[in-house]
């Protein structure tokens, strides 16, 4: 378990997350891609904190902030999905090709 291997794992998670975010049509699946990106970012942050920053407390703080970001992303995402579905009966990105109605 070296910094390099940890960062490669984080990079793989971020790469898969980006694939999901770009390729998925359904909103909820798209959000899963975003979550996976944040997952990789958190792993990288904790790896740097543990192996390269001599345990500086800001490293852990960064991860806490990332968790808050993830919670906000989820909550706002679901709220928007519900609002859009109510307005347009749409649950895929393709259905939202106009800016108004």
């Amino acid at each position: 378990m070296t910094l390099t291997t940890l960062l490669i794992v984080a990079a793989a998670l971020i790469g898969i997350g980006i694939y999901g975010t770009l390729s998925q049509q359904s909103f909820v699946m798209l959000m899963m891609g975003l979550e996976l990106i944040v997952n990789g970012a958190m792993l990288a942050a904790v790896s740097f904190w543990a192996l390269s920053a001599a345990g500086a407390p800001e490293g852990q703080l960064l991860t806490i902030v990332a968790m808050a970001v993830m919670a906000i992303e989820m909550a706002m995402g679901f709220a928007l999905v519900v609002a859009v579905f109510r307005a347009k009966q749409a649950d895929t990105t393709e259905a939202l090709d106009g800016l108004k109605h």
Binding site: A11, I14, G15, I18, Y19, L22, S23, M29, T93
Partner: peptide
Amino acid sequence: MVHQEKVAIGVGVVVFAALS
């Protein structure tokens, strides 16, 4: 249920390669 899958795979692989 996917769109632009090839682009997405490409971007994912490039990002992975760059970060690695």
